[in-house]
């Protein structure tokens, strides 16, 4: 199990099928000993009881579990918790609180960008990351010219948000909410 040149990167082994590791969630450091099978999503929801990140499909097909890892959005259901040693995780609980909402959360309320609310934390985490990705110049499927700066427009937002399903069908309102935040930033 050990490798001579990188001992410090090994989790402390309690039993071969579980591991001890540390990660930071919304700025708070946690050391966990978990079954290796535990996904990042289940570590958050079941072990840290941070249930804002949702489980809609558990197979990377809905986006309800979207969280930011070191600033990058991923599906927490398709990532093993043990692989996040040392990572900074941001979940909806860290985005904003009831008495000081993040502008994206406020925009979702303003534009009724949800109904049942189950996909909402994932939509909001994704929406924040989408604006960063456009600013950083990451291309998308609808980017017309790959070699010029990315234009922030409705088509870009819709395409980039397409990994977050909303069965209540609030897409048109989510677009308005994201545009409100984008316009306030620019």
């Amino acid at each position: 199990m050990n490798s001579s040149n990188n001992v410090e990167r090994h989790p402390k082994t309690v039993n071969p099928n579980s591991s001890t590791f540390s990660l930071s969630v919304n700025g708070e450091r946690h050391t966990l000993t978990l079954d290796n099978r535990t996904t990042l999503l289940d570590a958050l929801r079941e072990h840290l009881q941070l249930t804002g990140s949702k489980k809609g499909c558990d197979h990377g097909q809905c986006g309800a579990c979207t969280v930011l890892v070191n600033g990058v959005r991923i599906n927490a259901c398709l990532s093993l918790a043990v692989m996040h040693e040392g990572d900074d995780i941001a979940t909806i609980e860290g985005v904003g609180e009831a008495d000081h909402l993040d502008p994206m959360q406020q925009a979702f309320v303003d534009h009724d960008a949800f109904q049942c609310g189950y996909c909402t934390p994932g939509q909001i985490c994704s929406a924040k990351a989408v604006l960063e990705e456009i600013q950083a110049g990451l291309p998308s499927h609808v980017t017309y010219d790959l070699n010029t700066p990315i234009e922030l427009n409705d088509a870009e937002i819709r395409e980039r948000m397409s990994g977050n399903l909303c069965r209540c069908g609030a897409y048109a309102n989510i677009l308005k909410a994201i545009n409100q935040v984008a316009e306030a930033r620019s």
Binding site: N75, V130, T143, G163
Partner: peptide, 19 residues
């Protein structure tokens, strides 16, 4: 290699492509 960039961004979702 634009064909590669185009193919990549047509796949999966932003979240999945990040990982």
């Amino acid at each position: 290699y634009a064909v590669l960039s185009r193919a990549l961004v047509s796949g999966a979702s932003g979240q999945l492509r990040n990982k």
